[in-house]
Structure formats: C-alpha cells, structure tokens
C-alpha cells in the first residue's frame, strides 16, 4: 500500500514553491500518494493569471537576482514545472482551499492552473492529515 503524504503550500515565494516542488518530486519518485493543498499564498501562486510570472522570493531576505541567477546556474526548472511533472508521473491530487480562492479571485478551479482537481474546505485538509503518513507545510 502506497504511503500517503500531505503537502500544504501556503507561500507564494518562488523559493518555497520550488522547495515544495522538489519534495513533491521525491515523494512521487517513491510512488507515494500525495495530496497538495493550496492554502492562502499557495492558492495565489496557482492562479491562472499569476502562475507563470512568479519570481519574488517571498518573505526571504536574500537578493532576488542572486536567487534567480542561482536557479539558472544550477539548471533548476521554473517552480511550476515540478508540479506539472509530478502530476504526470504520479498519484497527485491538487486541492484548492475555497476561502483562499475567493480571497484571490474565485473558488472556481477554472480560474487556477489546470492542475487543480478540486476545491476543498479545512475539514478535508484535517482529515487528510489524519490519514497521511507525512504532513509537510511550506
């Protein structure tokens, strides 16, 4: 039986989104079943009209240019590509927090990138944590 992981994305900073994508990739490589919950900042990052434009390092204090140059030097993909690849390769479900969605634009999945499967409430998030083997919040 596959291990279950819950990954909660609550930041729209490119470094945290990248970290989340790398962790997700590792979980998918090990055939884990993953639920990705898009909470406030995470929901913003997955907004259809925003997702391909995020370059700011969020609340981190390092220099934006240094970070982006480092990504380029290390041949690190754009953060969203990790999530697309994980969805393609593994058992990954993306759940959008309805409240977060409404805060940013709406609670309709079509306003977010095509990866989003469902809109959820906090009850589903808590239940999923209870059932999961791992819970990571970023």
């Amino acid at each position: 039986m596959a291990k279950k992981m819950v990954l909660a994305l609550a930041s729209s900073g490119v470094e945290k989104l990248t970290v989340g994508g790398i962790i997700l990739s590792g979980a998918v490589a090990q055939d884990m079943e993953v639920k990705v919950f898009l909470l406030l900042g995470g929901a913003y990052a997955f907004r259809k009209d925003v997702a391909d434009k995020i370059q700011d390092p969020g609340e981190a204090h390092y220099n934006k240019e240094e970070l982006l140059n480092g990504f380029q030097r290390a041949n690190v993909p754009y953060w969203l590509d990790y999530y697309k690849q994980a969805k393609e390769l593994g058992n990954v479900t993306f759940l959008l927090c309805g409240t977060a969605g409404k805060i940013w634009i709406s609670d309709k999945p079509e306003d977010f990138v095509d990866l989003v499967d469902e809109v959820c409430g906090i009850g589903e998030y808590i239940s999923s944590i209870e059932e999961a083997d791992f819970h990571i919040i970023i």
Binding site: I22, S25, G26, A29, A74, Q85, L89
Partner: peptide
Amino acid sequence: RGTSCPGPLLAAKR
C-alpha cells in the same frame, strides 16, 4: 546530465 536534483531521479522513475 545537466539537470539538477530531482531531474535525474524523475528521469529514472519515468
């Protein structure tokens, strides 16, 4: 070659 972690790992899985 040329890809950073997790690129090679995912390439292996794929």
